[in-house]
Computed example of a mutant assay.
Amino acid sequence: MLNRLHIRLSALAVLGLAMMLSGHVEAANDQYHLGPGDKVRVTVFGDDQLSGEFQVDANGAIAMPLIGEVDAHGHTTSELAAAVAEKLSKDYLKDPKVSVEVIDYRPFYILGEVRNPGSYPFVNGMRVMNAIALAGGFTYRAREGHMKINRDIDGQVQELEADQTTVVLPGDVIEVPERFF
């Protein structure tokens, strides 16, 4: 009996780990669009002086040695790698091989009826309830079952209905409203 319980708990742990990893893959895969506040590692194979870590600035660009600013806003890591390679191939390298990976995601924001509203670092697999816990929990006036998320979707900020299980993405602004009674 104890062995079966251990096996069931182990299976649940593996399932939980798989869910966490799938959240990691979801945010880190090539569907993620870069924005201000993201930090990326650009690797130019064979040239360590051109490789490095770069922050996407408020204008949505990264500033690299030799080639200057490269637009990153709204692009995937593959698209940014192609843009860097194109700029490098014009005047500096013949057939450069470039890879880009996100090393730090932009923060998310939470405001309204939470104890500590503000900006928090994004963690893969985060849900609204995790974000609320980071912000110190609900205040006594919070409307706990109904939140809104302002999310940039294809360059347009859209207001989405959310509950405590909704997935949080980098750059999201979570609003916890006040209840009426």
Results as ranks from 00 to 15, higher is better:
L9K: 12
S119N: 10
A61G: 07
K148Y: 09
F138T: 12
E159M: 15
A81I: 03
L80C: 04
D104N: 08
K94F: 15
E101S: 12
P170C: 04
A142E: 04
Q156R: 14
G145H: 11
G37H: 03
L21A: 10
F54D: 05
P117Q: 14
A27I: 13
P107E: 08
E69Q: 15
N3T: 06
D154H: 06
A28H: 15
L50E: 10
I103S: 07
V128D: 05
D172V: 02
R151H: 05
R115Q: 12
V14W: 14
S99G: 08
P36M: 02
A133T: 14
G125H: 13
L66F: 12
A82T: 08
L50I: 05
L50N: 07
N150F: 08
F45K: 05
R141T: 04
D91K: 12
Q31T: 07
A27L: 08
L17E: 04
R8F: 09
A82V: 00
G145I: 02
Q164W: 02
S22F: 11
P36W: 00
T139A: 06
V70N: 03
A131I: 06
H146E: 14
L88R: 03
T139D: 11
M129H: 10
A11V: 01
F45Q: 12
V42I: 14
S119H: 01
T165V: 03
I62R: 02
K148N: 07
D71S: 07
N59L: 10
R8V: 10
N130A: 02
M19W: 11
A142H: 01
V42R: 02
L21C: 08
I7W: 02
V157P: 00
V44T: 09
E69G: 06
